[in-house]
Lab assay of single mutants.
Amino acid sequence: VVSQCEHCRQEKLLHEKLRFSGVEKSFCSEGCVLLYKQDF
């Protein structure tokens, strides 16, 4: 499944979907998940 990563904003293969404040977010890698959590 290809989707837009919430952190790097590129269309890539889906690595993980997480829920932040009740909204589902898509990420392409574990690195982007960690960076997004730092900024959140």
Score class of each variant (00 low, 15 high):
V1E: 11
V1T: 06
V2P: 12
V2L: 05
V2A: 09
S3R: 07
S3E: 05
S3L: 02
S3D: 07
S3F: 08
S3M: 11
Q4D: 12
Q4K: 15
C5Y: 00
C5T: 02
E6A: 15
E6P: 15
E6Y: 05
E6W: 06
H7M: 09
H7T: 01
C8A: 01
C8H: 00
C8W: 05
C8T: 00
R9N: 06
R9W: 05
R9T: 05
R9V: 01
R9G: 14
Q10C: 10
Q10L: 03
E11H: 15
K12P: 00
K12E: 01
K12M: 08
L14S: 03
L14T: 07
L14G: 03
H15D: 13
H15R: 10
K17W: 01
K17H: 06
K17T: 10
K17A: 03
K17R: 11
K17G: 03
K17E: 06
K17I: 13
L18G: 10
L18Q: 08
L18S: 06
L18R: 11
R19C: 14
R19H: 02
R19F: 14
F20G: 05
F20E: 12
F20R: 05
F20Q: 09
F20L: 11
S21D: 15
S21T: 09
S21C: 05
S21Q: 08
G22V: 01
G22T: 10
G22P: 00
G22L: 00
V23E: 12
V23T: 06
V23F: 12
V23K: 08
E24I: 05
K25S: 00
K25W: 00
S26R: 09
S26D: 06
S26A: 07
F27M: 03
F27A: 04
F27P: 04
C28D: 00
C28V: 01
C28K: 03
C28L: 00
C28I: 12
S29F: 14
S29G: 02
S29A: 10
E30S: 10
E30P: 11
G31V: 09
G31C: 03
G31A: 11
G31M: 15
C32T: 00
C32A: 03
V33P: 02
V33T: 07
V33S: 12
V33H: 08
V33R: 11
L34D: 11
L34N: 14
L35Q: 15
L35R: 14
Y36R: 07
Y36L: 02
Y36W: 03
Y36Q: 07
Y36A: 10
Y36E: 08
K37A: 01
K37F: 04
K37L: 06
K37E: 04
K37D: 09
K37T: 08
Q38R: 11
D39Q: 14
D39V: 03
D39G: 12
F40K: 11
F40L: 14
F40S: 12
